[in-house]
Amino acid sequence: MSIPFQLNGRPVSFDGPEDAPLLWVVREHFGLTGSKFGCGIGMCGACTMHVDGAPIRTCVLAVGNVRGRAIRTIEGVAADADNAVRKAWNDLDVPQCGYCQSGMIMTATALLAETPAPTDQDIDRWMTNLCRCATYVRIRQAIHAAAAARQHKS
């Protein structure tokens, strides 16, 4: 049975079982490999995508749940040249190994959509993604920088 949804603004359809995890459907069937596999239990956040704008851990999300919904991945965010989060990430050279950073950017983008000027406490609460290189100092700086850039613009 076919499961239609939007992937980075494009209508797509998955012909396969409802319980296939969205992460692997996007990586293996649609070839977008920017979202990563880290823990398989929804803890580390390397697989984070937006489902109707909300940051979701997709390694544990069955694709049947996103029928008709809008999925956005890091590739979709990167296509938006105006994305202040990604720009701040680049300006501050946040990544080290970089493996968790797609998920970090997805979560941070959703945070700023919800809370345009987050405090450090807001960041601590939202950014539960894990980074083994511990790039957290620059992640925090980048979120504040992106928030400032967005406010300056609006």
Binding site: G31, K36, V94, P95
Partner: peptide, 20 residues
């Protein structure tokens, strides 16, 4: 500036996991 940052923030950086 790191030469690998842009690829690591747009999803295009290829890791072992992404081999095809």
């Amino acid at each position: 500036p790191r030469r690998d940052t842009a690829a690591k923030t747009d999803g295009s950086a290829k890791y072992g996991l992404d081999a095809e």
